[in-house]
């Protein structure tokens, strides 16, 4: 009963066409990289004008702190400091100069300590990046496992119970959760140091405190995705063919449900960076979050600007990676190059 297949038309996927497809891929990558530049540049611009266009005088604040108790300062000293930090220049000139400095890798010196900004940030950044990484390393597998377990059987008692867990966790304030963990594991059980410290043991509790609220939203999105995909026609058909549910669930349902999860995981990096501010305060860790908080208090503009741009670069880079990953994960978002539609 073989039906005669249509005559082959090998010309449809000619090298010319695949070259066009490649060109469109290159265009896509370039456009995404362009978005990256735009995001970072906008964050810089916005932060700069918020910091420098404000009607307060950082030099006065600076002198007040530095010479506390050592008598007043003359207006010559103030002018000299202004000139030293370039604050006597018009705003737009400073905007462009600072941009040039940042691009050449020199974010300037702190108003407060007079030390170079890279040194200040470099001293605490590893702590924060370690904490953020720790948070993600816990949050992503945790939410994956929790969501996969929740959605395994539709309408089961386990599903009905677990589906409420993310909302419950999300409702708990992050600082309170941190304090609770400290009370239990540091003070009562004595398993982990309560404040500061370095090394892995000091990282565990803050990472957990940071990860839990983040994994709540990730889990909720993934559970929703898994439940939706399970209702899809192709899943029912795979079951009807007699494939074991484990196979259908992991190879088809989970894979399809991961697409929105990946997008959200990329956006979560921003949430994690914000979360470090609270977590570092609760756990009394030195880190970018606390540095940012104290720099805002003293209006230490170069430090704030550097942290803001750094966070923007991190966030935009992760989301650029997600954007570039997406067409690999989902063929439907690829550009039509090999159009052999009949």
């Amino acid at each position: 009963m073989r039906l005669p297949p249509h005559p082959d038309r090998p010309g449809t996927t000619s090298p010319k066409l695949s070259a066009a497809a490649r060109a469109s891929t290159v265009a896509y990558v370039l456009r995404r990289c362009g978005y990256f530049v735009v995001v970072v540049f906008s964050v810089y611009t916005l932060s700069f004008f918020l910091l420098y266009a404000l009607p307060s005088d950082p030099v006065a604040l600076m002198l007040e702190r530095r010479s506390a108790g050592a008598g007043g300062s003359t207006s010559e000293q103030v002018e000299a400091l202004r000139a030293q930090y370039g604050l006597d220049q018009p705003l737009l000139v400073r905007y462009i100069e600072t941009l040039g400095q940042l691009l050449s890798g020199d974010p300037g010196t702190s108003f407060q300590s007079g030390r170079p900004v890279p040194e200040i940030i470099g001293a605490v950044a590893p702590n924060t990046l370690g904490l953020a990484a720790g948070g993600l390393v816990i949050a992503i597998p945790l939410s994956l496992a929790l969501a996969l377990a929740t959605s395994w059987r539709q309408g089961s008692a386990l599903h009905r119970m677990l589906v409420n867990v993310p909302a419950l966790v999300a409702a708990v304030p992050a600082f309170w959760l941190g304090l609770l963990l400290l009370q239990l594991f540091s003070f009562t059980l004595g398993w982990a140091p309560s404040a500061g410290g370095t090394g892995l043991s000091a990282l565990v509790l803050p990472s957990v405190a940071l990860a839990l609220p983040v994994s709540a939203s990730l889990t909720a999105v993934l559970v929703r995705g898994l439940d939706d995909v399970q209702r899809a026609d192709f899943v029912e058909l795979l079951r009807a063919r007699g494939l074991p549910w484990r196979r259908v669930y992991l190879a088809h349902v989970a894979r399809n449900a991961l697409l929105p999860f990946v997008t959200l995981a990329g956006l979560t990096v921003g949430g994690v960076l914000v979360g470090t501010v609270i977590t570092e305060t609760v756990f009394a860790r030195a880190g970018l979050g606390r540095l940012l908080a104290s720099s805002v208090e003293t209006q230490d503009a170069p430090v704030i600007l550097a942290i803001a741009v750094l966070a923007a670069v991190l966030f935009a880079a992760v989301n650029l990676a997600v954007d570039l990953l997406y067409p690999i994960l989902d063929p439907r978002t690829r550009h039509r190059g090999s159009g052999a539609r009949a």
Partner: peptide
Amino acid sequence: VGLVPQDPIRSLDPLMR
């Protein structure tokens, strides 16, 4: 028993060749 579904558009896993 082999099943042939109603909606051919949504009955194949979109992520698989």
